[in-house]
Design a protein around this nucleic acid. Structure first.
Length: 575
RNA sequence: CGGGGCGUAGCGCAGUCUGGUAGCGCGUCUGCUUUGGGAGCAGAAAGCCGUAGGUUCAAAUCCUAUCGCCCCGACCA
């Protein structure tokens, strides 16, 4: 491609609206253009990279036995009503009506679509397993889209679905996809971890996320350097030798006493005011579970895992109560809350059962209780594990200290079970002639997010620095002086020969000064640059440089094409 | 959803408080010079001042409504 004709427009200035490096660089380098909140045009450079990522995905999915299809993005509300998600999916599902006043939605995912399809064609165990996938635009009306392609409302997703005769068989399909995903992200050149994850509201029994490691990631993940255990923070377990699910009252604890604690509201402030350890105070949280208030008790220095809590409560919607709601429920403002004398159901973390003679809020503004004895001064509905794991906690498998990372979730695999097949009637007849629902798995990759995550991982002060496998072009040819016929003639020839050799070349034939080309060419993130100038040409040489290298090599003009070919092949083979 | 910020030329912004001919930088176009890390000079084009009402002799500026975009929060008791 000749740069002078290309739809590539760079900017010197960093766009103010963008915060993440990937977002800033994609705007500056002319990869994307924003149309409205969370909706972006992919311009040629981004689209080329996306197509490369898609190509890798297709190769690996096909190799794993999956078949590509394309489901409609516009879906009738009817099939979403059958699965129950018309009611439960919430506002992220963009709904509308057609001229006949029928309900429709833009599909944010395709469990319904694919299950509806499969139930019409799969009737026998002989037809299973079956694995179907697609690469397509999705629309989710996100609460707050942000960070460019990282969390858009419209985005490109690869979604795949497996259908099996049993859970055991589904495990095999799941493992195949897990392995395919590992190969896909490796081939994309990304540093990532596969971590155990919560299944969220898609449902199902277990799942793994594929997390690209990056400081700017929204997810926290924990991994064990010794045994390899890795999990999303919200799913991570901690080894705890705590099993008491009832309080044992200590007779040594004095009678409880209400004291004034002034402006001390947070756990740390109260602990400092009373000169006690935060470990000895009870943190009292108020939540609304499907609208009903519940009170949660944690040891002062522990944090609550909301996902665990939601599982314990069996609720679908869990939100922290607002300050005004808390005052109504508890009779006091946040900062002085406690479990004593309230009528709301109380759940305590396991650690609370080990506490004696502790401190908690008095449900009386600016007052706390001293000498609180769980089991004597208050009772709870249940004592359960609600602890949020953090870096430094002991690994659940081997006890080693867990390491913390930040990650960007680029892929997620779920073993779904029969959550969709059963209500939607995707059933087959087994060997005995019995009708059974298919056991499903579902598998997603955020294709456009992979692109953003790759830039988060591969950039420097001068711009993007893509892995060769997903770069929009492999080589940029930069003649230094367009007036010089020897320079342009050589550049023309190298461009043509490289192109003929199957190399993807961006030919920077713009009639601009060398500095402009260097700055732009660094910004774009193309792995290799061939610089053609009069001085080197006099010796029959051109310069060759990797984007990440400081210095360049001088290569004989006659050898440059073969040399570039071998370097690119080595890059692509290395992964 | 709550809180904050912002809509003026393709991009980044000033002008708004205190109403009175629409400005600056970058980019774009023309010409000359320059040519290995975002060149210099000279000239030029380009704006329903987000939208709709209102106040006024007069509105980017004041008032009302509305639309849009960005950021923050959703571990804090």
């Amino acid at each position: 491609m000749r740069y002078s004709q290309a739809f590539i427009f760079t900017r010197k200035e960093t766009p103010v609206d963008a915060e993440l490096p990937s977002h800033q660089l994609m705007l500056r380098a002319g990869y994307i253009d924003q149309l409205t909140a969370g909706v972006y045009t992919l311009m040629p450079l981004a689209w080329r990279s996306v197509q490369k990522i898609e190509h890798i995905i297709r190769e690996e999915m096909n190799a794993a036995g999956a078949q590509e299809i394309l489901l409609p993005m516009v879906q009738p509300g009817e099939i979403w009503m059958q699965s129950g998600r018309w009611e439960h999916y919430g506002k992220e599902l963009l709904r509308f009506r057609d001229r006949k006043d029928q309900d429709y939605c833009l599909s944010p995912t395709h469990e319904e679509g694919v299950t509806n399809l499969v139930r019409n064609y799969i009737n026998s165990y002989r037809q299973l397993p079956m694995n179907l996938y697609q690469i397509q635009d999705k629309f989710r009306d996100e609460i707050r889209p942000r960070a460019g392609l990282m969390r858009g409302r419209e985005f490109i997703m690869k979604d795949g679905y497996s259908f099996d005769v049993s859970f055991d068989a589904a495990e095999i399909s799941y493992k195949k996809m897990y392995d395919a995903y590992s190969r896909i992200f490796k081939r994309c050149g990304l540093e990532f971890r596969a971590v155990e994850a919560d299944s969220g509201n898609i449902g199902g029994s277990h799942s793994h996320e594929f997390q690209v490691l990056a400081q700017t990631g929204e997810d926290r993940i924990l991994s064990c350097p010794k045994c390899g255990y890795a999990a999303n923070e919200e799913k991570a377990e901690v080894r705890r030798d705590l099993h008491d699910t009832a309080f044992t009252v200590s007779a040594a604890t004095p009678a409880r006493e209400e004291v004034f604690t002034g402006n001390a509201h947070s756990i740390d402030e109260v602990a400092a005011f009373l000169k006690i350890s935060p470990e000895n105070s009870i943190k009292t949280l108020v939540y609304l579970a499907d609208g009903e208030p519940v009170v949660i008790l944690m040891r002062g220095n522990d944090n609550l895992n909301e996902i665990k809590l939601a599982h314990v409560l069996g609720c679908t919607q869990l939100v922290m109560a607002s300050d005004s709601a808390i005052e109504e429920i508890m009779g006091a403002k946040p900062g002085a809350l406690g479990p004593i004398g309230i009528k709301v159901p109380v759940y305590a973390d396991l650690a609370v059962a080990t506490m004696h003679d502790c401190v908690c809020g008095a449900n009386h503004d600016d007052h706390h209780f001293l000498h609180v004895e769980p089991g004597r001064d208050f009772e709870v509905k249940a004592i359960v594990d609600l602890l949020l794991a953090q870096a430094g906690d002991p690994c659940p498998h081997c006890g080693e200290s867990l390491q913390g990372f930040r990650g960007i979730e680029v892929g997620h695999v779920f073993l779904l079970g029969t959550k969709y097949s059963a209500p939607m009637g995707a059933v087959f007849l087994d060997e005995k002639g019995e009708s059974k629902p298919c056991v499903m798995g579902c598998y997603g990759i955020g294709v456009t997010r992979v692109l953003a995550a790759a830039i988060e991982q591969y950039h420097d002060d001068n711009g993007i620095n893509f892995p060769t496998a997903i770069a929009p072009y492999q080589v940029i040819v930069a003649p230094m002086l367009m007036k010089s016929e020897t320079v342009t003639a050589t550049a023309d020839r190298i461009y043509e020969e490289l192109t003929r050799a199957g190399i993807e070349v961006l030919y920077d034939d713009r009639d601009v000064r060398a500095g402009v080309k260097f700055k732009d060419d660094d910004l774009l993130g193309i792995p290799y640059r061939i610089t053609i100038g009069e001085r080197n040409l006099a010796e029959g040489k051109v310069e060759f440089k990797h984007r990440a290298d400081k210095d360049n090599e001088k290569i004989d003009v006659s050898e440059i094409v073969e040399y570039v070919k071998s370097r690119i092949q080595a890059d692509l083979k290395a992964v």
